[in-house]
Design a protein around this nucleic acid. Sequence first.
DNA 1: CTGCAAGACGATGCTTTGAGGGGG
DNA 2: CCCCCCTCTTTGCATCGTCTTGCA
Length: 914
Amino acid sequence: MPRRGSGSQRKKRPSEDETKSQHTEGSLTEISKGAVGKLLRRANKGGTSKKKTTVEFEPVQNGTQVVEPIVPQKTSEVEHCSRNSIGKDSADEKCGHVSIDEGCIDKKEELDDSDWEDGTVAMDDHPMTIELNVTPDSSVKKQIRRASAEDKELAELVHKVHLLCLLARGRLIDRACDDPLIQASLLSLLPAHLLQLSNVTKLTSKSLCPLISWFHENFHAKNCTNGEKSPHFALASALELREGSPEEIAALSVALFRALNLTARFVSILDVSSLKPGQSFKPMASGSSKGIFGTSTPMVSKQKLDFKSPKKSLSYEREKLCESSLGHSRKSKKRTAPSEMDQSKDPSVPENLNHSVTNSQTSEAQDNLESHITDKSHKLKRKGDLEFEMQMEMALSVTAVGCSKSKVGSGENTDSSNSSCPLKRIKRVIVEESSTSPQLISTAVGSMKVGSPLYWAEVYCSEENLTGKWVHMDAVNLIIDGEDKVEAMVAACKTSLRYVVAFAGHGAKDVTRRYCMKWYKIASQRVNSTWWESVLAPLRNLESGATGGVVHSRTNQISATEANMNDSFVPTRSSIEDVELETRALTEPLPTNQQAYKNHSLYVIEKWLTKYQILHPKGPVLGFCSGHPVYPRTCVQTVMTKERWLREGLQVKPNEHPAKELKRSIKPQKVQDFEADDYDCTTDSKENIKLYGKWQLEPLNLPHAVNGIVPKNERGQVDVWSEKCLPPGTVHLRFRSAYSVAKRLEIDSAPAMVGFEFKNGRAHPVYNGIVVCAEFKDILLEAFAEEDEREKAEEKKRDETEALRRWYQLLSSIVTRQRLNNRYNNSLTPEVSNDVHCVNDKVSNATIFGSSDKSQTPRHHQIDKCDTDLDVSVSIPVKDHEHVFLKEYESFDKETSLLTKRCQCGFSVQVEEL
DNA sequence: CTGCAAGACGATGCTTTGAGGGGG
DNA sequence: CCCCCCTCTTTGCATCGTCTTGCA
């Protein structure tokens, strides 16, 4: 019986393949395309198995399905993506279901196994007809593909990069808000009575009401940006047109506040891609903002990323926008077509979409879209999928309409999308801007929520809250001091606010706490706080510097009193806010559902404690949740076994009872010989794991080493997890062969176990050196040094002997050869000599002059020489004579360092001393 | 329809202390 | 006979996170 996991493990393969293909792509462009493609696919796949199967499986009503060969697509990157993943997946799916008959669901495991082996069938050139008799339900139950570690890593990387991008964008917008020209223009538009606000010393949020109202009446948020350009231009044109994206409008409000010498920040929700893999990225701004291709999702389209190039003319940019949007809609259609968008089960969607989009440019995309949608109109789908699909469709259509420059169309879209709000409160707020003209598309996106508030301003009101306070000012939605409403509005748009960042003075500060009442809900969706704080640290300084007092280089305009006041707040404004945010963090209301306590940073209920956790002290009770007492998280203590604490250099105090006991449920295999009741007894009494808390501990008090004997554990060793674990009076010596040295000197020692290595399904202790009593340390080190020296000397000697042996061998062969030549082939001698030259041509440390009875001239043989110590008498046999080099015939030339050894027969060997 | 609780299940991480045979 | 080295083999449970299901 195969394990359940085996099937799902197989399912990992496509992602592995994708990754490989990405890694093997050379260029950065390809990699980034791959990453974006992957992200989109991830978004399209969605989180669940059901979705995946329903996405890619194509049931046909009559039970017969023609599987077309997958044709390479025209766009290269699309081809890259779709062939690698979607195409493959779908091929896989098709094959996987080929032979599933009704009622044969049990066989699916086996079929899974054949999935991948047969996966290439659909790639075949020949179309094939496959008889299918499948109920859609049968495909719904399998293929849970969990996110792997790699997926998680990727998602986190994308999340981080996205955060950085959005931070950077926020800073750009903030900088644009400082533009003197824009500020001056805004002031020039302002009615005279509102201008007096700049002289108000005691600012309250109420005093700003008329200003906000005026601004809201005169500046309207619309669905599209004013083309792709730098924030400065965007703001300028929004100012000119008196309308712009919510981002631009919010930024203009900030600029206006700053123009009036108010301390203001541009605040933005950073709507980043999910930190967790497998969750489709649903930008919040799809309603009143810019749709899915808006700037809140800069990763969607790479062309969109060019929006900051200020040099391009507006018309060119418009043109480009069209192209890119259209191109993108094609692309995204192709990428998403086989998956997310295909699963529409609502036939009204394509119709509506078709009606609403009349632009000829988009006809191709629409056709394809329609065909895809109608093809697969019978699948089960979750609500979230449907919504995402609608968002996508609306984004497509909006983009297309934007391209056609048909302002009517885009206006209608804006209004219609704004008109549908689930929350009545929000509806009331927004009802003025939405002209409530339900167009065709509005029914398609009827369930769409209104765009979430993404951008607003914060103004520092010195007269609020005794100490002064940052006040939320949403000019787009005409909400003043509505920080508690933001969360609900965002929640109504199906997204949580994870990062709210305030920008000022080219810096930024995370003010999420001000707007988030249910931190526990977003905590897990935020990036590792250490990383985030390190990113924000420099920006925070800039921000606090700017909002502290010396604001926006207009101090000369500030009246003396105000300047003084500002100055007095310089060091404290930021810290007061910090305290405020911190207070919010520590006074979060108790959640009402139990699960919220699972990883809550402040509160805990006993139910969610882990095996090694305990409440100590058990109180105070802060409240109750479904009958469970709620305790502060600070009461949670970690408990561990004695052995574990030992590693920390701590031991349990005497007479302490275990704070917690766990029943051991594992491996009674060794005691199987015991009788059953015996065995039960042992489990009851001995097998419990006894755990102790920190308060039951004292510093480790190991037995002292006495009389040179190392205290050892029951295994005759010392566990050296750290220096703290060493018995007093002992040292840990790590040098090589320490054990043998100690043994030789008969010094008591114990192997030092430093950890475990898990190998072959078993834990193996890892040893490193020995533990000995401290008094032997020096002796041992000395002995080791001696030993080491001796070993080295021995080694040297070994080498020398070996060298000699080789020398002897070499010389013997030379001489033998020489003799043979002399005897049988006198004429060839020079060549032979040359031969020898060649063979030994490397280093000329030694020269041998061989002169035997028949040879007239001495021959030079250059040979390798490893050693100089040739004072042992080397005997080289020549003919009937064995050379004997006697000491008395040696001569040594100090200048050339040549030692010449001679035999009585006249043969000589010259050796160079090194 | 929504939210909650409980359960199911995959992924992951922690667990953690040979034995026998052959050759020198 | 002793000692050293090599080679077997590749856990399994607890926890976490996520998803499903059922209920209010």
